[in-house]
Design a protein around this nucleic acid. Sequence first.
RNA 1: GGUCCCAUCGUCCAGCGGCCUAGGAUUCUGGCCUCUCACGCCAGCGACACGGGUUCGAGUCCCGUUGGGACCGCCA
Length: 503
Amino acid sequence: MTDQNIRVRFAPSPTGYLHIGGARTALYNWLFAKQNNGTFLLRIEDTDVERSTDDSVQAILDGLRWLGLDWDEGPASQSENRPHHQEAARALLESGRAYKCFCTQEELQQKRLEAEKEKKSYGYDRTCRRLSPEEVASREEQGLPYVIRFKVPDPSLGDTLDSDGAESVMFEDTVYGTVEKRLEDIEDFVVVRSDGLPLYLLSNAVDDIRDGITHVIRGQDGLGNTPRQILIYRALGEPLPVFAHMNLTLDPKRAKISKRKHGEVVTVGFYRERGFLPWALCNFLLLLGWSTEDNREIVTREEAIREFTLARAGRANSVFDYRKDDPKFFTDPKAIAINAEYIRTMNIEELGELVAPELEGAGLWDPAYETERRDWYLHTVDLIRARYHTLKDFPELGRPYFSEEFTIEPKALKKNLQKDARLKEWLPELADRMESVEPFTLESTEAALREFSEEREVKAGLIINAVRAAITGQLAGAGLFDILVTFGPTSTANRLRKAALLL
RNA sequence: GGUCCCAUCGUCCAGCGGCCUAGGAUUCUGGCCUCUCACGCCAGCGACACGGGUUCGAGUCCCGUUGGGACCGCCA
């Protein structure tokens, strides 16, 4: 199964931040490379000078690194290969597979409008393809600008694609199956602009050839380009790579997603900032158009590498059901569910390492968590993780666990602390009682508290909920005695007394 | 407008002619557990776009309709 020669690439254009669609494309390529022990290369398609930015390149690299989608070669810049693209264009011209076209953009625009008016399809009418060598020479002498167009074989002129006389471009897409495009439906497309800059269709193919790409795995929007690129490969006498197009990810209104239209929520950076685990995001993205054979939802990195198959990729587009301004979900609920699942089930030490920088960022980190308080730290993270959805929940919702500086939530105050006026007296009394509990364990604290509530002739629940509110400031949380043991007698007593002051 | 792709619960997926009175995940609802919330467990709501064929039998194959999407640039 292992093929050392497999080479794939992710070739984003740096015109915006890395968005989840791009990340998914990168992920599929990466998985495929890893699975086959192949090479994953990163190529930045920066030939659109006007729209490409360095910030964007940086954001893409950062995003990929954060996701853990490491590349084996690159990042290379497409613009560096421009001489090769131009060389390829020259070769096409020389072999008669391309020609110079002197039609102006205005003329073409005019023809396009006319065709539109008559509700006819428009394709370049090949005016310049019929120019004699002398006519071409004379126009060049006049210094007229020209573009280079690819000469699409014209069956009506007796041109065929190959010796078989095929009148259409055919290829086998790994996910979409046999794709056929008639030559007559392909216009003589431009490969080099009048200012001498090669266009994407050409550059991309030439780069893939030079990079020795064996499998082109990209979004379905590339499917329409493929026949033309195949024509280029053939004209250049190069073997074809395997093409595999993956379904697109659409927004809830079923439109293509873009940073411009949807904002941060579609960028990878957003998920990093909101406390997603890199692999949890990948796991979510992975399932947007692919499934394991047994339809598992939680797929580890190793499992994904082992089980990934392009053949199981879906053909129908999928919807990224992100939410905005939703009180409960800040993105696709499923993405959050997967993230939460990892948080509550992953190895606690690994989680501890991911939570650490979050606490640090919030000024809640104690260096002792790495040394003598490490057990306490991991125990505490373990105690609270079941109800958290993102890493951000640890410094935010988890603040009372890591700091004496926290606020009592109004709801907790009202519902659990002000419920019974006698709590103002009881809390300090209970504080005294707790300080004398020795040893301070799950069982002993519970016994002490229950005894206390029996003496006061109230239900233990009343006291328990009040104590939780006093100690954590929150309505909901872990089991109370776990909390008590976590905080220890001193902090417990302090917090109880402090809360009583608010009553 | 032309060419092409796609079509199962709200969303993500399973299904590759009989195992489907359509399964899982997520969301939502109810219950159990219980000191609260969450977790966990149980239950419920919820879909084969429509119409024709083919077949003993169709979610699964074919055609059409409808709907959605992509591509059709001197953008990538």
